[in-house]
Amino acid sequence: MIQINFANDEHTKGFILSLFSKLIDGEGFIIERDSRKRVLSSDGDEIKIDEFGGVTNGSEIYLKNNVVSLINFYRQHSGGRA
């Protein structure tokens, strides 16, 4: 497992996202560079740059920097319990 950590400033977040061909739209949402579609978070909803906490592989799962969202993520990926 490669663990990569980054500072929480918006420029660095933008850099990380650009490596995955993602951009930020005018409202601050993360979008696909080619299709311009908004990217969904592990919660299944659209995710803004200021909520972006990380990306884990599989199908490029985008994580929100939010305790409730992370508990949900763990519940989904560890048999129903965080």
Binding site: I4, N5, N8, G54
Partner: peptide, 13 residues
């Protein structure tokens, strides 16, 4: 490779 890319704030949470 398997990877996990996380902000320092996310790690704290």
């Amino acid at each position: 490779k398997p990877y996990s890319i996380e902000s320092l704030d996310l790690i704290k949470k």
